[in-house]
Amino acid sequence: MIATPFTPAIVRGALELEPTARGIRPHRLPAWVRQQFPDPQLLSREIQPSGVRIVVRTRATRIELRTHSARVAFAGADRPRGSIDVFVDGSFWSRDVLQGGDATEVDLLAGTTRQLEGPGHTTVVGGLPARDKLVELWLPHNEALELIALDSDERLAPSPDHPPLWMHHGSSISHGSNATAPSEIWPAVAARRGGVDLLNLGFGGSALVDPFMARVMRDTPADLISVKLGINVVNFDAMRVRAFVPAVHGFLDTLRDGHPGTPIVLVSPIFCGIHEHTAGPGAIDPASLGSGGVRFVAKGVPGDEAEGRLTLAVIRRELRSLAERRSADPDLHYLDGTELYGESDAGRLPLDDALHPGPGAHRLIGDRFAAFAFAPGGPFA
């Protein structure tokens, strides 16, 4: 077997590859951010390689990828394991669900945690056609992963093809919460439909109009950019209207410093019944603990909007108005999130935990975003 090193030329969708005792850890945020703001929530999400792929051209008929995973598990709440999805020449080939790995088991009722250690995992991709082809291995969106070894029976080479790069920032929905597999998170669905490379800067619980995130995006080359803001600001009850609107202006101004003519799509939140007219903070519903899953509730009081507190309805109103006031920028486009997933969609594809879309809704959102952004005449056409 031929060993291939993990380099930025074949590991796409990561901003940094960190050497570890075992191998290589892909990061979706650079080291300076992790040092400047070592928030546990953010750090635990940026090492989950959502949207990260190993992309090679090869005549190999067998490829083996050795990895070691780490995840958070909640006692009494079943959560699907991560997986590695394989595509050959753009078509789905196989899915390998991770086994073993390390886990931090959290008991929300008891308020305790314990560390569990497990073995590494090997993904075997066999029976590949013996011809030149593009092979992509999508890494798990919901578990941290160390890359240990990549072996094959023929040489693996970086793909010379580099489609336009789409850089997207958003919340746990963009990260892929409740999606079945890494290739089925909505940004991945949209990227394949649009024929673009994806850099997914969606981080669970961490789309808070952070200035450091704007600087990361400013300094990262990209052909297409989208920013989906709002739900986390409401979840955390982090701002009022007076602070939110200038913060978004500043975020966009920073993006423009590095991408003066790049198309930017500003996306408001999708429909979420608990927060449409009720402010945050959001919280886990205690009644759902021990039921095999968790559900979320909004702890604000209806009517708080009059005091400047943010709900999703207020966020959409303000982002729409903000985009209109920036109409001198012909490359800034606004998309109402309810066009991607609205109240009528919630009736047939309900949010599984009252906050995050399930697998069917992820596909719907991805298809609709692609139809808006990549269609002839669309902002990313």
Rank of each mutant, 00 (worst) to 15 (best):
I63P: 00
T278F: 01
A188N: 06
L332S: 00
P5Q: 11
F380E: 03
I315Y: 04
E143V: 04
T338Y: 11
D102L: 03
L266V: 10
E18H: 08
D197T: 07
L29C: 11
P350L: 00
A243N: 12
V301K: 14
W32A: 10
V125E: 03
A313I: 08
S174F: 06
D89Q: 08
S171L: 04
T58S: 13
F6E: 00
E154S: 13
A9D: 13
I270C: 12
G366Y: 02
R240M: 14
Q41W: 12
G360Q: 14
G250E: 15
I315G: 01
I270M: 12
L43R: 05
K133E: 11
P5S: 12
L224E: 04
V234N: 02
A14H: 05
R242G: 12
A222C: 13
L312D: 02
G76F: 07
S91E: 15
R81K: 11
G360P: 09
A238G: 10
R256L: 05
I284G: 02
P260Q: 05
L332V: 02
V267S: 02
V11S: 02
V56F: 02
R12Y: 10
L165G: 09
A346I: 08
D151F: 10
D132R: 13
I231K: 02
A287N: 11
A70T: 12
A110C: 09
Q115W: 13
A323C: 13
D331L: 10
P80G: 09
G280A: 06
S268M: 01
R34A: 10
L199G: 04
I284T: 09
G82I: 04
E105Y: 05
E136F: 06
A73E: 15
H275W: 10
S83Q: 03
D107P: 08
A130I: 08
G377P: 10
L145C: 02
A144S: 14
L139G: 00
H141A: 07
D132P: 07
M167C: 12
R114W: 14
G282V: 03
L229I: 15
T278P: 07
